[in-house]
């Protein structure tokens, strides 16, 4: 239940300003960490080397889009809850981590893999990486190395409440109590799905409860199908105090505006940002870099040393 969930307790924010602030601080944190490690970049302005918060935003929006498409094209087809959950993980991760720390192209497959597990969509890792274009073995390595890291950054809050079940509930309710104003509620489904799909590319899931998302989706669909959405909300909130109804109307409008305001970054822009990212990303987390390989070797050596130590101890 959402009202007693970790989602409500830890992953809900009151407005977009708070989200922007969090992301900005993770951006500055990363830059400071890198400067402390490698020394100051040659130019005066750090943003000549590192990504601006705005550029970061464009990049993760782009990768949210890619993640959604990846989920949709996935074979076997995944339930909607997996898509919702994986995007929720992605958003949560990049709230407190910079895009420069761990490349989002690594994170999207990891989020999706974890979401499959959590939403009980049983699939093996080999089957999973068959959906990945390019080097599958490498993809497998990336997923398995980053999975635990992701879980840790999610603070082990793995349950995500998605709006999809709430939509079902509201539709049942509509068919039962409001059949006089909305006929054939099932015809609204394509519109609702479209709305929720687009919602995935906004921060709505960090700002509104899943049932509110579902309500906004239905109101959107009801409007589009030329039924009376005002009457719908009146019946839905008939037992509630009037301030709740006005609040509901307001957040529906807010969400509809969010949907309209979605703009995808242009491809050339994304390409440019990715080029810049190659120079400033954390090489420790880049599986193609020399630093990453060195780190892995050190880890290997350490475990071998530990084993040897145990052997010598027993010789005494």
């Amino acid at each position: 239940m959402f009202s007693s969930s970790t989602q409500k307790k830890h992953w809900m924010f009151s407005n977009e300003r708070d989200l922007a602030k969090l992301r900005e601080s993770s951006n500055t944190n990363y830059i400071q960490k890198m400067i402390a490690r490698d020394g100051k970049p040659p130019t005066e302005d750090v943003y000549d080397t590192f990504l601006l918060p705005l550029e970061e935003k464009m990049l993760y929006r782009h990768y949210e889009f890619l993640l959604r498409e990846f989920c949709k094209k996935f074979t076997p087809a995944v339930p909607k809850a997996v898509i919702g959950t994986s995007l929720a993980y992605f958003k949560r991760y990049y709230l407190r981590n910079s895009v420069m720390d761990l490349h989002p192209k690594q994170m999207i497959i990891t989020c999706m893999y974890l979401a499959c597990k959590v939403e009980e969509f049983n699939i093996s890792i080999t089957q999973f990486v068959n959906n990945v274009k390019g080097d599958r073995e490498k993809a497998q390595d990336i997923i398995l190395t980053n999975e635990l890291l992701l879980i840790q950054h999610l603070q082990y809050h793995l349950t995500v409440h998605n709006p999809y079940r709430a939509v079902e509930g509201l539709l049942i309710d509509t068919k039962t109590r409001m059949s006089h104003i909305i006929q054939d509620a099932d015809n609204l489904r394509p519109l609702i799905d479209d709305f929720l799909d687009r919602m995935l590319l906004t921060d709505a899931s960090l700002l509104f409860a899943p049932s509110q998302l579902a309500m906004a989706a239905i109101v959107y669909a009801v409007n589009k199908a030329h039924f009376d959405s005002n009457e719908y909300l009146n019946i839905l909130f008939q037992d509630a105090p009037p301030d709740k109804l006005t609040h509901a109307r307001r957040i529906c409008k807010e969400m509809h505006q969010m949907i309209k305001a979605i703009e995808m970054p242009a491809k050339e822009q994304v390409k440019q940002i990715e080029k810049k990212l190659e120079k400033c990303r954390n090489q420790d987390n880049n599986p193609d870099s020399a630093a990453y390989k060195r780190k892995m070797e050190i880890d290997d050596d350490n475990s071998r040393l530990a084993k040897q130590g145990r052997y010598e101890d027993s010789m005494e």
Partner: peptide, 17 residues
């Protein structure tokens, strides 16, 4: 299933007030 769907539909509608 019906109860669960309806509960999750109504749970949290007042969130944010």
């Amino acid at each position: 299933a019906c109860e669960r769907a309806i509960q999750s539909a109504l749970c949290g509608l007042y969130f944010g007030i």
